[in-house]
Design a protein around this nucleic acid. Structure first.
Lengths: 197, 197
DNA sequence: CGCTCAAACGGAGGAGCCTCCGGTTAAACT
DNA sequence: AGTTTAACCGGAGGCTCCTCCGTTTGAGCG
């Protein structure tokens, strides 16, 4: 009964008519923006409106709110992972690492508050999250590795440990200076990473 | 910010105007019936209609769907627990135990399918569930105890074990003969309980 | 009793959800 | 280029949610 969900990767493989693909992309883009500023509870009708399509079109592409959330979520995760190699090319390894951690924090910041809705996704489609953390872990790992090899930071760092340290930012209570706090924490971590053992 | 939720026990202590209490009780009763036959997703408007009150009245008493669900849930839990002593008075200890287990099974049967909605409650108000299982455990325990003391069943039974065995019925896949299966399981358990070690 | 008024009622109204289907159009074929 | 048609579009419609506020009523008091 409840099986065989169609794949909905952001790099959609299924062939779509030109107009369909256009609308789909626009919807994802607008949904991302809307989720950002109003949380996942935003009106779907509003998202459709912003994308300049009818509500019917939205529902055809994403039969469920969760489908849409999933695609947006995965997309952001992928771009965050991709940013790692990008930053590596453009900056010194330590700068790249720090900047990436900042972005990571910025990313999970937007995810607070919609924890409840994400939980539904989490239980119904846990593979998404497994993949997701895999991607992130990989990105962080490669940053650590190159920075370590080139002598910018120590080499005895466990990726998992650093990831945990970053994730702990979740638990910093909501407050106006949340961003500052998390950035200070990252600074602290960087100092620690640069310490020769 | 999110704290100090008003107590909503089924034995409501807060003084209410006569009409208010009447409506409240009627609403709970109808909600229980509606949840039973259509699941927790039933239209609240429908519940109000059945209870013969306006939707506004429903929302005043239960600002949230979850509030209503909680009250109904707790009520049923309490009556299930209360049934234990009732059965004890009316039947031989072993019969009482078996009958109670049947009712228990019947109860959790109605809770399948609305697992998702209950999960929200579970995370937001876990004390309810702690209390709930406590009540149930207590009821089962006293049934086992008297049946054991009077020599109807063996005395080396752990309440928790039996409870687990009963709860495992959750995992029996949905099917037309679900009820039969679970009753056979109970029969099996009873046979085991009567075996002198 | 009859008055008073805080408490309770109830339903209209604005907004969102989701479905359904007649109209539109990209793209394959001739 | 013209035709065909399957894929796609969009919004009206039926339903539910939840709030807000004018009206009704229970119950304490003179």
């Amino acid at each position: 009964m409840a099986s065989a969900a169609p794949k909905t990767t952001s790099t959609t493989p299924t062939k779509l008519r030109a107009d369909a693909r256009r609308n789909r992309d626009k919807l994802i883009e607008m949904a991302a923006a809307a989720f950002q500023e109003k949380g996942v509870e935003t009106s779907l009708e509003d998202i459709a409106r912003r994308a300049g399509v009818g509500i019917g079109t939205l529902y055809r592409h994403f039969p469920t709110r969760e489908h849409l959330v999933e695609v947006v979520y995965r997309r952001e995760l992928e771009s965050l992972a991709a940013a790692a190699s990008d930053l590596s090319e453009r900056h010194a390894p330590d700068v790249a690492l720090e900047e990436w951690m900042r972005r990571f924090v910025g990313y999970i910041a937007t995810k607070r508050g919609m924890a409840n809705s994400l939980r539904i996704l989490m239980t119904s489609n846990s593979s998404l999250f497994a993949e997701g953390t895999g991607l992130i872990r990989g990105a962080l790992e490669s940053l650590i590795k190159t920075a370590g090899e080139k002598g910018y930071i120590r080499t005895d760092i466990e990726t998992t440990d650093l990831l945990h340290a970053l994730s702990s930012i979740y638990s910093i209570p909501e407050s106006p200076d949340w961003r500052d706090r998390s950035h200070r924490l990252i600074g602290l971590l960087m100092d620690g990473l640069k310490t020769r053992k």
